[in-house]
Design a protein around this nucleic acid. Structure first.
Length: 501
RNA sequence: GGCCCCGUCGUCUAGCUAGGUUCAGGACACCGGGUUUUCAUCCCGGCAACACGGGUUCAAAUCCCGUCGGGGUCACCA
């Protein structure tokens, strides 16, 4: 059998997600166990959302965790390049072959057409996919129209009958009737491939032997298998890992939990502890010892021990584990070094000194006032959150919309933070003082402190978000139904209640 | 809603492949006690689960069927 090659294919469209590290970890364990290679491929085919700084963020975070790759972006070799945006000719070639062999067809429907079809089919309870109308267009005519420059996409011609059989190494055989599978778009009208095509083409060209990824991908496997078949390539083995979950049992999401690896870094977790923690979800080591290093995980890694059921990401257990690493593995000197390398250094002290200068009477006033920049966990009295003439519920909703607003802009500096907060406050028709009160308490744990906007900017996006999220929970949270309603109002920009005065 | 996946203490899990050694073991959290000038650590103890119902069998957490519950997915996002 040829050399084992595995990969992760993160898309640079957001903050580095702990789920990416979790999947990377098991890919690495698998590769090392079998003397194979692990690669990182950047899946940046979504031109509207991909950003170089996100790619850097993901790579940096993986490095921080000690998750290293044998092949990846910037390390060109026979199988590279490792950024999908640099491999477009491969996808076009594959699409062409698919078109020629009749396994794919051009679709000239506009997004409006598609929307209409979707609604119609939903009403007739036909399932929500595309109805395949463009499949009937004669290939020659289709070619002419494309030649003439008519906008189109390329779709996979999924068989109308039969079943897809997937042999999942974790779950066994998974059978899906083809009639449940949509005529997936392979090439977008911008000339870029969708995940499905790019993924299959690259996995083949990069000689990937085992695909280990989250189980949210199970439902798209039929499309992939169809592609392998049509292209006459041998498919890899599949391992669909259990999902990481929020405490409420839904897929781990930043709406409900801190998911950014950077958050854990900045909140003061040790990389080895986070990695260890990730390794005990979805897998368990033979001896039963819960504390183990990456090397130990690799040394007796056994794919058979991979679980099939999902796991709740329990921050309390992570904290406990992290504590063990601190007290069992570090000397006081080590601790001091970690602390200063972390955030207890001039990168934090200097900007805070600037803010504090006019707000102190003795040097001793400094640390209590800036303690919030280093604290991971603190409780603030719920009643302090709520401005005088507002209810807790209003306050929760306000904070929630601040969170959404923060999600929208990427630049994280004082000016943007201020603009965002002012914008949301205006939408609510609140006074700015009412807005800053709950934010102060959420961010600092008390009603007074250094200037809010600067503080939020210095604290950083990940920590600030987490604090506000925690404030919301502390205030009694928000029901699913109300959240949905609020989101609707938020999206339409009509937050303020009808003017009463 | 269709399709698919999953179902052991509140949470992470051992045990399930090859049914008996398990009135189900460990860990986190929680509760109680001990050590410690305080706290933390550490030590001891406690609480707490095989989703439910049928079947197969001398014997089922382990095999089969059904039900229920949870989740994932149904984009010119990955």
């Amino acid at each position: 059998m040829s050399e084992v090659r595995v990969r992760i294919a993160p898309s640079p469209t957001g903050d580095p997600h702990v789920g990416t590290a979790y999947i990377a970890l098991f890919n690495i364990a698998f590769a090392r166990k079998h003397g194979g290679r692990f690669l990182v491929r950047i899946d940046d085919t979504d031109q509207t959302r991909s950003r170089p700084e996100y790619e850097k963020g993901i790579l940096d975070s993986l490095n921080w965790l000690g998750l290293t790759w044998d092949e990846g972006p910037g390390m060109d070799n026979d199988w590279g390049p490792f950024r999908q945006s640099e491999r477009t000719e491969h996808y076009r070639e594959a699409a062409k072959r698919l078109l020629e062999s009749g396994h794919a067809y051009r679709c000239f429907c506009s997004s409006e057409d598609l929307e209409r079809i979707r609604i119609e089919r939903a009403q007739m309870k036909l399932g929500r996919g595309y109805d395949g109308r463009c499949r009937k267009i004669d290939p020659e005519e289709s070619g002419r129209r494309a030649e003439a420059g008519e906008a189109h996409v390329v779709r996979l011609a999924v068989p109308q009958e039969g079943d897809c059989r997937l042999q999942d190494e974790i779950r066994g055989e998974i059978v899906t009737p083809f009639k449940e599978v949509d005529d997936q778009i392979l090439m977008k009208s911008d000339g870029f491939p969708t995940y499905h095509l790019a993924n299959v083409v690259d996995d083949h060209r990069m000689r990937i032997t085992h695909v280990i990824r989250g189980r949210e991908w199970i439902s798209s496997v039929p499309k992939h298998l169809l592609l392998y078949q049509a292209l006459e390539w041998e498919p890899p083995c599949f391992y669909h890992m259990p999902l990481l979950l929020n405490p409420d049992g839904t897929k781990l999401s930043k709406r409900k939990n801190p998911t950014s690896i950077r958050y854990y870094q900045q909140a003061g977790y040790l990389p080895e502890a986070l990695l260890n923690f990730l390794g005990m979800m979805g897998y368990s080591r033979p001896g039963g010892e819960e504390k183990f290093s990456l090397e130990e995980l690799i040394s007796d890694f056994e794919p058979k021990r991979l679980h099939s059921s999902d796991a709740v990401f329990d921050i309390q257990k992570l904290r406990w584990l992290n504590g063990r690493y601190l007290r069992e593995d570090l000397t006081p000197e080590d601790l001091y070094q970690r602390l200063t390398n972390w955030r207890m250094n001039e990168s934090l002290w200097k900007p805070m000194a600037e803010l504090m200068l006019t707000r102190m009477e003795t040097l001793g006033d400094f640390v209590p006032s800036v303690a919030f920049t280093l604290a991971d966990d603190f409780e603030s009295p719920a009643e302090d959150f709520v401005p005088k003439k507002r209810t807790p519920e209003e306050t929760v909703q306000f904070l929630q919309t601040i969170l959404w607003a923060f999600e929208e802009d990427d630049a994280w500096d004082k000016e943007n933070v201020q603009k965002t907060i002012e914008r949301v406050t205006e939408l609510w028709n609140w006074k700015i003082r009412e807005a800053t009160a709950p934010l102060f308490v959420a961010i600092m744990g008390k009603k007074v402190g250094p200037p809010l906007y600067d503080s939020i900017a210095i604290l950083g996006k990940d920590l600030s978000r987490a604090r506000i999220l925690k404030g919301i929970v502390q205030l009694g949270d928000i029901s699913k139904k109300k959240l949905r309603k609020l989101e609707k109002r938020w999206k339409s920009g009509t937050l303020a209640p009808p003017a009463s005065s």
